[in-house]
Design a protein around this nucleic acid. Structure first.
Lengths: 136, 136
DNA sequence: CAAGATTGACGGCTCAATCTTC
DNA sequence: GAAGATTGAGCCGTCAATCTTG
């Protein structure tokens, strides 16, 4: 808990200073990019570990400055697609170096190569474990 | 980030069901207990990774139900001491088994003994590292 | 009726300003 | 003037209720 809090705090400070793109905004843009540029509203919520209402309001704010846009889902008229705009794509690309450097500075830097690999294995085990025990 | 979010979410659900003592309340009580029963306001804030105003409001809520109490610091009249009450001590003790079981179920269970030791080493390295680079 | 998304009410955190004591 | 603590305004997340479409 303490490691998470400290690393996130430091990352946010760095990004606020250098980049003006908060960490969760960056995560949103990267998530969309990795998904090919667009996702359904509820898929986005799940991947960002947000509730649906939080996702709605989050997308409201990001759409307001033009980094993403909503379109009605062609296959299900109830659903909304959230898509990266060209502006959003550029914002993600220009934010990437600062963000990755911050992660390295506040996290990776303090670990050996071997520790990084073990940590990845361990955390993935927990993620899988959590998924298994979700419905207990 | 994802591991943290998932584990905290599951822990909170468990605690809400079984125990009615939120995770951050438990952390507050444990922190005070480990400090010998009382802490200065700003020390508490630091150990819980909260801002001072957040700590003030947090203690307001917990004091309102009688688990902690404020007293004026004897050595510095500007300062406040936050102390466990007898009720708070009992609440922490009765919450401990549920909380520890939850941590085991959602976190420890999925790790081998060796992974746990390595993870502890790794996370401590980051905590120390963060403290070193705080003022860069 | 169930699922996707949104909205309103409310809780809790942050920032800046304030008050008190060193 | 600086540090400890608090307060007010505003932002953001959650929960429950609502609207629309399957």
């Amino acid at each position: 808990m303490r490691v998470h809090a400290q690393v996130v705090d430091h990352l946010e400070s760095d990004l606020a200073d250098a980049n003006h793109l908060p960490l969760d905004w960056y995560e949103l843009l990267v998530t969309l990019r990795l998904a090919g540029g667009a996702l359904r509203m509820h898929e986005l919520a799940e991947q960002l570990t947000l509730s649906r209402s939080a996702a709605t309001r989050f997308v409201d704010r990001v759409e307001e400055v033009g980094l993403v846009e909503r379109t009605i889902c062609p296959t299900d008229r109830r659903g909304m697609m959230v898509a990266l705009t060209e502006t959003g794509r550029r914002a993600q690309q220009s934010a990437a170096p600062v963000t990755l450097r911050g992660i390295q500075r506040h996290f990776g830097q303090h670990l050996t190569e071997q520790q990084i690999e073990e940590l990845a294995t361990t955390l993935e085990a927990i993620l899988r474990g959590e998924e298994r025990t979700c419905d207990l």
